[in-house]
Design a binder for these strands. Sequence first.
DNA 1: TCTCAAGAGTTACAGTCTATAACAGTTGCG
DNA 2: CGCAACTGTTATAGACTGTAACTCTTGAGA
Lengths: 235, 235
Amino acid sequence: MAEARTTGPRARYREQTRAEIKDAALRQLAEGGTAALALVKIAKELGMSGPALYRYFASRDDLLGALISDAYEDAAAAVAAAPDPGTGPRARLHALATAYRGWAVAQPHRYLLIQGTPTPGYTAPPETLASARAVLTPFLPVFATGTPAPATAPVVAQMRAWLAADAAVAAWVKASTPDGPEAVAGALTGTVLVWSTLHGTIGLEVSGHYTGMGHTGDTLLTTQIELLADAFALG
Amino acid sequence: MAEARTTGPRARYREQTRAEIKDAALRQLAEGGTAALALVKIAKELGMSGPALYRYFASRDDLLGALISDAYEDAAAAVAAAPDPGTGPRARLHALATAYRGWAVAQPHRYLLIQGTPTPGYTAPPETLASARAVLTPFLPVFATGTPAPATAPVVAQMRAWLAADAAVAAWVKASTPDGPEAVAGALTGTVLVWSTLHGTIGLEVSGHYTGMGHTGDTLLTTQIELLADAFALG
DNA sequence: TCTCAAGAGTTACAGTCTATAACAGTTGCG
DNA sequence: CGCAACTGTTATAGACTGTAACTCTTGAGA
């Protein structure tokens, strides 16, 4: 389990089995939530019996971790694939936000996987953190073109401090903004704000808190994004 | 179990035991998340053995439901108890938001209980929905004094439709806004927007997504609220 | 081509937890 | 003061996670 070969027919079969396991797990997740994910059932579904699964995932948490990581990557891909309307940063921002929401609404169980923390005090592995960052990457250049409103000054200041303290983050932001340091801080500010905005609207929608209010999710997100675009004077 | 007396020493003892059980449950929840909540352990902690707990809560989900309901009520009380700075609706809005965040940050596990949906397709019982509404009630009169920005027009329209369709919601909003129907729709719009804003910032913070960025939670919330106050031209 | 170690899978089992059943002691209402 | 409701007990079924011990297969390298 420690370090296996990465090539050859053995490894290929192994990878395929892992994928089948994850597929079955997602199916269970979709119709019963995290609590319904049972390794025994998955094994039975694949025709193998019980403990065989532990050859492929060290534990239930390991499997869940893999699903979370996959979900982040998939979400990042969905956002990155958002069509560019080509009519300026404001429209681009709406397109990105809509793409993210679309992904989340289409597979609520996977968004819920990302949304919460399974156990308090849990910190995601760095690889997962990088994937989470990737979701937000396309937003950086959009906000780099804007001018943060005065009301956002405190956040800008904190982002500046963060950029100074965390080289990895600084490199990440800088790679998306060819402009100077003030654009960098502004881009990060906007991205963090849009992150929380997205989480606010989409999280509530996916958790079913909007049921009964009509199809509010899209309208609410659009409006929130519009307000944020105003705050950055996006064109 | 169906309908028990609500008075007398028997009922009093019963209520106290239920409270002790919930206390122990919250303690477990605080240090292991939902997954760590085990009825058996709670029973052992209280000196009783196993199945005795089922006299007080029909199932694990029943206990969790009670905890969720309590959390909503507690959160609502915390928001309602927010001090009124008395310097206008904008300051009042900040005070309410800060009170809510303070409650959530002080007991993250209880906020996480509220935040997510345990299982997809789950709909909270009406009693719980009312408690959830109570959290937001103090926000209504604040936004009733504002004028929604043009960008929020689509949301206002949907809120108007919702108010027309759902009498309970209409009564709830109207009770907090002595003004005309346009103020009612505006108040509801602002409240829903602030709800999603609060969830966005606080949810991410409580889930630990801000770790490493410094103490960003407060700043981020203040800024988001400020932007929202601007959108409603609060004084 | 042949060997053998690594990998894949099996059954058996220990341990935890939810939940029910059957039963016994206790208490407070009428 | 008696009985019905309430509280608690042990026994037990059943689901699930994870480990141990063992067997069979296979592919990489001499």
